[in-house]
Amino acid sequence: MASVERRVVVVTGASAGLGRAIAQAFAREGASIGLFARNRERLEATKLEVEQLGGKALVLVGDVADAQRVEDAAEEVEREFGPIDVWVNNAMTSVFSPFNQMTPEEFRRVTEVTYLGAVHGTMAALKRMLPRNRGKVIQVGSALSDRSIPLQSAYCGAKHGMRGFTDSIRCELIHEKSRVHITMVQLPAMNTPQFDWVESRLPNRPQPVPPIYQPEVAADAIVWASHHRRREIYVGLPTVKAMWGNKFIRGLLDVYLGRTGYKSQQTDEPERPDRPANLWQTVPGPYTAHGRFDARSKGVSPQVWLSEHKWGVAALLAGSAVFTAALCSARRRR
């Protein structure tokens, strides 16, 4: 347990939402965690939670779109805690808007944070992990990295990009016979505060596309991924359905989402025109891991358990099939 408890982890986007839940989950293992985000006040609150849960924390204020700041943060973590074992690229932003109403600056900003932020984090992590020939990079993906939806073209494009460059890096690691591992955890709709601060041109308040899951479901899957060498992990049955559906019925999904995707991403409550958004600067406030959808969110996912134990389940099913065949054969011989 000593080696597990002392792992050094970096989590980007750690001040609220899923990133904060990820930090809490690693803290329960006693990890030393670099907490990277723009809002110092919420990072300090996250640090306090991490320490109460048994971990250690270092506050790292910065923007993942700034490659040099990400590199400097990695240096700070290694000076304070030692070699980084796990790097989690979680930071993101989005704009809820039809594409023809977005500005080039908005599209660029979403790309710089959600896609290039993960690129910068991966560069900083691999710079340190490759010479040591150990470590794990976890990309926090989405069902939208494969199946895009309307009103989030920049975010969907960024997640597709994340998946593309992750696959490329994986091939390079295999070529080099490196023990460094990179994995992507694909998520469903999550109950996080992003829907209270995301830039939006929608008439009503934005919401995650139901069904919605609590951030702890994904956070626990990410911690599990940090201990195992899986290429990719799907969290939640909706993610599995979206990924596989897009392989076989893309055209039908285009039509379905064209008809339903606008309404499913909005509540019935009108949006406040003066609501602050975090696209360009952090939004103040005591946001935590959870958003405003607790009453509608699932706290467990049987699918995640099956994904994590798929080889054991497969072996059990195979054993059951062999036993059944042997039993039927024995009865026939009688």
Rank of each mutant, 00 (worst) to 15 (best):
P211Y: 04
D254R: 06
Q214T: 09
E269D: 13
P208V: 02
D220A: 12
N204F: 11
T267A: 09
I182V: 14
D167E: 15
M162I: 13
M243I: 14
T192Q: 01
A189R: 00
K241C: 09
R231D: 15
L202H: 07
A219D: 01
A218Y: 02
G236W: 00
V223L: 02
N204H: 13
Y262Q: 04
E199D: 13
V223E: 02
L202N: 06
Q186S: 13
D167R: 14
I233G: 01
T239G: 06
Q194R: 05
Q194D: 10
M162L: 15
Q186A: 11
S226W: 01
D167V: 09
V180N: 03
Q194W: 08
Q186T: 07
E172W: 10
S200V: 08
P211K: 04
S264V: 14
V198A: 14
S200N: 12
W244T: 13
I249E: 05
E269T: 15
I182M: 14
P210Q: 06
Y234G: 06
K177R: 15
H181V: 03
P210D: 03
D167C: 12
H227N: 10
T267I: 09
V198Y: 03
Q265I: 10
S168Q: 11
A221R: 00
N191C: 07
R205C: 12
D254Q: 07
H160A: 14
Q186W: 02
N191K: 05
R229W: 08
A218G: 05
E216I: 01
W197S: 10
V235A: 05
L173H: 04
K247C: 10
R201W: 09
D254Y: 06
V180R: 04
D220E: 15
T260F: 00
L173P: 02
V185K: 00
V217C: 02
P215S: 06
V240A: 11
K177P: 07
V198F: 07
P270S: 12
R179F: 05
T166N: 11
F248S: 11
W224K: 01
G161N: 11
G261P: 07
E176A: 15
Q186Y: 08
R170Q: 14
Q266R: 11
H175M: 12
Y234S: 09
G161V: 14
G251K: 12
F248E: 05
P193I: 02
R201L: 13
S178V: 03
V180Y: 03
P210V: 06
M184S: 10
E216N: 10
E232T: 14
E232G: 06
L252Y: 07
H181C: 06
T166D: 04
T267K: 09
R231N: 15
V198K: 01
P208K: 03
C171F: 12
P238W: 05
P208I: 00
V235I: 10
A225S: 09
L253I: 09
V223Q: 01
R250S: 13
G258R: 00
R231E: 12
Y262T: 05
T260Y: 02
P188T: 09
V235Y: 00
I174N: 05
